[in-house]
Design a protein around this nucleic acid. Structure first.
Length: 213
DNA sequence: TGGGCGATTGGCT
DNA sequence: GCCAATCGCCCAC
């Protein structure tokens, strides 16, 4: 059984760390892959300049404005998908980004989906879902899964109790954000090898001859 | 309506 | 560590 929807209808800063250790499980014609969540980030709606919902509802971010427990998938950098779960009390367009996890079922299918680099070296297991875009590839998530219900018994994509994480999560700044980069709203399981490396936002270099500093 | 830039990744120096 | 890939969103014009 998936987790209960009421458990996600709380402030997103409470929900996010509580997702650590839970399992995302997806079944398709190809088979099943399940991932134990090891790293997440909270996005707190209109109070959060780093959130896609900060400037109000659009076609892209509509799922964040709906009820908790639904998949918000967005496309970025012209090639990657990232997945969130909508969360928060009614009226709060909040979400939690799944940043990394450990494959706990369907290792072979996850490896196949992730492929091999040009060098042909196999991808280490810990890297299969290490990073938000890699996690989506491992689970086979793309634009078509946007809006899926993660908490339905009959859904092909479910959020399950999994192996609870009972310790204290570590917290730190969110990865790659320009706005509100100081808020420590990233949560991860201490010492887990699948946690993604932290990268601060790097402003794009302006063209040569542009404004002096 | 045009264009800058992003909740990233992998390959190369 | 540096940088290209690649496209759709969204705001400024």
């Amino acid at each position: 059984m998936p987790v209960r929807r009421t458990s996600l209808a709380r402030p997103v800063l409470e929900v996010a760390p509580a997702l650590l250790g839970l399992v995302l499980r997806r079944t398709t014609d190809e088979g099943t892959v399940a991932v134990r969540i090891t790293e997440v980030e909270a996005y707190d709606g209109p109070n959060d300049p780093g959130s896609h919902s900060y400037r109000g509802q659009t076609a892209r971010n509509a799922v964040m404005f709906g009820p908790p427990g639904y998949l918000y998938v967005y496309f970025t950098y012209g090639m990657h998908f990232c997945m969130n779960i909508s969360a928060g009390p009614p009226g709060q367009p909040s979400a939690v980004l799944f940043r990394a996890g450990e494959i706990v079922e369907g290792l072979d299918l996850a490896r196949t989906r992730r492929g091999a680099g040009r060098t042909g070296k196999p991808i280490p297991d810990r890297d299969l879902a290490r990073g938000p875009a890699r996690l989506c590839v491992a689970l086979g998530i793309n634009r078509e899964e946007n809006g899926a219900d993660l908490l339905s018994r009959t859904s092909p994509i479910q959020l399950l109790p999994g192996t609870p994480f009972t310790g204290d999560p570590l917290t730190g700044p969110r990865v790659g954000l320009r706005e509100a980069a100081d808020r420590p709203w990233r949560f991860w399981i201490p010492g887990d090898p699948s946690v993604s490396p932290y990268k601060p936002h790097v402003p794009k270099r302006r063209q040569a001859g542009a404004s002096p500093s």
